[in-house]
Design a protein around this nucleic acid. Sequence first.
DNA 1: CCCATTACTTACAAATTTGTTCGTACCATA
DNA 2: TATGGTACGAACAAATTTGTAAGTAATGGG
Lengths: 124, 124
Amino acid sequence: MGKRKENSTNMHNEKTIMEGCDLTYAVCMIGGRWKLLILCKLENGKLRFSELRDRINGITERMLTLQLRELEKAGLVKRTVYAEVPPKVDYELTEIAQELVPIWSQLSDWGAKHRKTTTKLISK
Amino acid sequence: MGKRKENSTNMHNEKTIMEGCDLTYAVCMIGGRWKLLILCKLENGKLRFSELRDRINGITERMLTLQLRELEKAGLVKRTVYAEVPPKVDYELTEIAQELVPIWSQLSDWGAKHRKTTTKLISK
DNA sequence: CCCATTACTTACAAATTTGTTCGTACCATA
DNA sequence: TATGGTACGAACAAATTTGTAAGTAATGGG
């Protein structure tokens, strides 16, 4: 993780913005490098830690763990531990996260539709 | 800004993910600390630099400039400079950005609806 | 006893984002 | 000539996120 300072301007601004803007709040919850990718993989049902790791190109176990923990705290992912050895843990979307799926898909469509146009603009 | 390294793992991962996931791509475009706040303020029409600055609590001129530049590069905001002294510049949403508005509003509703629930979970 | 498997941890380092503090150009007005 | 308003830019520092390279625990199989 890297714990955050309690009284930095940075932290204060983040809190203030999140409190005042539902949209920013919503986007923050899905705003880590690998979060959306993880959530997408879980759209079709439960997956084990190792399955996620193998399906997400380039992610390290540390990053996967961190992002899953945050998603869990945010109430978007449910973690289930089985009392087995070797360990078995799986992850699935919560109801709250399911409600986001249709919105994601619109966003995704928007991204696909405008990617080329926007990419051209960016490359200027 | 702070230019980015061309060949860091970090940068490489970001590129790869953006290329492979329209959703992540879409979210990246609105993913700075102040971006959504800025976009929201522009929903009802053009605003000048100073108007944005005064309406967004806590933002510095530097941050406002940076985020506006990125939004402009991303094709979400249009910048208009008037040849006057003192300088006058205004900003408005582009068509592409307008298309996002209905999606934002769903996301925002989702945020509002689940904020309490999720906040409780987070505070555990 | 040694090894393999799975889902993590920990300590550390590098990269990136944000914030602070100054400074600039321009011209009308005092 | 000094001042003021507007929209930035630059240099630097602090905070935060991301990546690297190691471990660890528990247990069945050899």
